[in-house]
């Protein structure tokens, strides 16, 4: 079991109001799965993604990632887990604007002390995986949206993480480019990566094998959508 959450809660206090963003979520995700988390805005899917991505700690409940109990870890331990186990892909790409594509991809390796030569080798390899080996020296503002998202994907892949976590990865892309990116996710899944996509669009969610529907901080239902893909969508 790669991911196991047990009765996960996240509660915020905004002024005097208490918001229960995530209310007792228990999910299990196996290694190699391709899962989508779907829900309207305010359903708590971003909060759940932050928890699964180890960017935040739960108020209550347990979270096990790759055999480690991460729900009780300190900030620096979480930073280590994020670096080693998780590759993030964001809606707004979140690349460093002044750094080249290659340097952006190298970044996670810098924070785990990989030597410079090894870093460049791995970063080039990751860029090759996303078909961007000819754009390595370009800065983000010299790349198209689709290319930027592929750089972000290469950055997510470079450390061989246990999990790729994508938050609305096609949200800032046109339909055709979005479809290309989703094809790329599909290919990475077939190559053995575990992928979780957070989205509010069903068209995107059905690229996955399994969809968790989130509403009001709870998992409302779970759907296996493999048959839709196999039926030649």
């Amino acid at each position: 079991m790669l991911i196991k959450t047990v009765d996960l809660w996240k509660t915020y206090t905004v002024g005097t109001e208490t918001i229960h963003a995530v209310q007792g979520v228990s999910v299990e995700i196996e290694k190699g799965e391709y899962v989508a988390i779907m829900g309207p805005s305010g359903s708590g899917k971003s909060t759940l993604m932050n928890l699964i991505g180890c960017l935040d700690s739960p108020t209550r409940g347990e979270y096990h990632l790759n055999g480690r109990r991460v729900s009780a870890m300190s900030d620096d331990e979480l930073a280590y887990i994020r670096n080693k186990e998780i590759g993030f892909v964001f809606q707004t790409f979140n690349l460093l604007p002044r750094a080249s594509a290659l340097h952006n991809v190298e970044l996670p390796l810098i924070y785990n002390g990989t030597s410079s030569g090894e870093r460049i080798r791995k970063a080039k390899e990751a860029l090759k995986t996303v078909d961007l080996e000819d754009r390595m020296t370009h800065r983000p503002n010299e790349l198209s949206g689709g290319q930027r998202q592929r750089v972000a994907l290469a950055r997510a892949l470079v450390n061989n993480p246990a999990l790729i976590l994508a938050d609305e990865p096609t949200g800032n892309l046109d339909t055709a480019t979005g479809a290309e990116i989703m094809e790329l996710f599909g290919r990475l899944h077939r190559e053995g990566n575990t992928i979780i996509i957070v989205t509010h669009e069903r068209d995107i969610a059905i690229y996955a094998d399994r969809i968790f529907y989130l509403r009001d901080g709870k998992v409302e239902k779970e759907e296996d959508v493999r048959h839709i893909k196999n039926s030649g969508n």
Partner: peptide
């Protein structure tokens, strides 16, 4: 934002 990116991908304090 840059600090956020760096932290997300594993920069420690």
């Amino acid at each position: 934002r840059e600090i956020g990116i760096r932290k997300a991908i594993g920069a420690k304090r």
